[in-house]
Amino acid sequence: QEPLTASMLAAAPPQEQKQMIGERLYPLIHAMHTSLAGKITGMLLEIDNSELLLLLESPESLRSKIEEAVAVLQAHQATESTHKSGTATF
């Protein structure tokens, strides 16, 4: 796939823009976190398109954002299990 530019994105209808970005993000995330790729991609797609284009252009920023998403998921799962068991499971 050729790199996604702001003009390519602007030329697509809004609902297709997220699809175009998601299709480029997913393989990059899948390479880092296979089992969570679908969830992490969904979480990142809630970011503004302009910021998502920056992420696609900067592997370093993308990596740190992916790690942030994993941390958010893990923290959420930890609180979930705490609620269920009533005790901290750290």
């Binding site: 998601g22 299709e23 991609t41 969904g42 979480m43 797609l45 809630e46 970011i47 954002k65 942030e68």
Partner: peptide, 26 residues
């Protein structure tokens, strides 16, 4: 590198490109 400040939500729906959806078993 640009710092992206948007917050991430665990409630976001999962996203799979065509052909990647693990929920479809061949």
């Amino acid at each position: 590198a640009p710092v992206i400040m948007s917050k991430l939500s665990v409630n976001a729906p999962e996203f799979y490109p065509p052909g990647y959806n693990p929920n479809f078993t061949d």
